[in-house]
Write a protein that binds this DNA or RNA. Structure first.
Lengths: 149, 149
DNA sequence: TGATGTGTTACCGTTATAGTAACACTAAGC
DNA sequence: GCTTAGTGTTACTATAACGGTAACACATCA
């Protein structure tokens, strides 16, 4: 299976906030860029706020801003904020047969292996910050500019 | 979301085959250790065979054997065999707004980042072979032996 | 020829997800 | 104070993936 698109949307949202340079952006506006519903954006913003990555101001003129500098937020932070479950790999649905030597011990071994793999993934995500992402977005924009209209 | 338990079951199955030392094991037998239905095992065996990791002999007295030495099969091979879709991370469901500078370019940037992360995960899985897994299972068994009955 | 076992298909219930709408609550500005 | 513009949260729906289950055609051995 795949990691939900929440991660992609979260990075998208945070990048937008970064371009906002401190002015709060509304979920409605961001939904326009992500091309989805404002509620979906707010649902993800709720996770990001809970993780301390964003801060919202309620009421008229309100919106959301980054809670820390973009260079201090890694993609790992984002990943952990929106894919909360902790374990990337599922083990067996039913406990394996304890009377089989393999069944009795395989899960402990699998747990070590999958934890290591997940750690490698998170380490890699930790190498990239939101600032890097925005820089790449800008660079990408220079190579393939807006379509003429 | 999480990676399906197919991976865990596949590693379990292959470890069983490894202990079989060349004699074919039946899906019924393996299902007993995994604690699931024989059809589930056969479904996964089908993926493993397609990836060239196992070979089956049909008919009475048949069953499945490893197609190569356990030391020549890494967890990455297993992962790629059963999680075929290729892309671990989902991107946006709907294409982002092309009239937004971020929306227009974020997917290319995300694709690079997620591909790197998935690569790190697969690299880590590639460090461990089925032979390692069996060795760890055996070692684990020495530390927590079978429950007295 | 019968027994055993694979490979595949179909179906079902469960779960996660994303989209959508609704509503209580909050804050700003006139 | 009232209105307007937002957030935060909940509920509902449709869709898709998954695992469990059963069934059946086909292959092979004795």
């Amino acid at each position: 299976m795949t990691i939900s698109s929440r991660f992609a949307v979260a990075v998208h949202i945070l990048t937008l906030l970064e371009t906002g340079r401190g002015e709060p952006l509304t979920s409605e506006y961001m939904a326009g860029s992500v091309n989805t519903n404002a509620s979906v954006v707010r649902r993800i913003l709720s996770l990001l706020a809970r993780a301390g990555l964003t801060r919202a101001r309620m009421g008229a003129g309100g919106g959301t801003v980054l809670a820390r500098a973009a260079s201090e937020i890694t993609l790992r932070d984002v990943y952990c904020a929106v894919e909360c479950e902790g374990q990337l790999f599922a083990l067996h649905h039913e406990k394996p047969n304890p009377r089989c030597p393999v069944g009795r011990n395989i899960q402990a071994v699998l747990e070590r292996a999958t934890t290591a793999a997940q750690g490698a993934l998170e380490r890699e995500l930790g190498e990239r910050t939101l600032a890097d992402v925005l820089a790449e977005v800008v660079a990408e924009g220079r190579e393939s500019p807006a379509p003429a209209r």
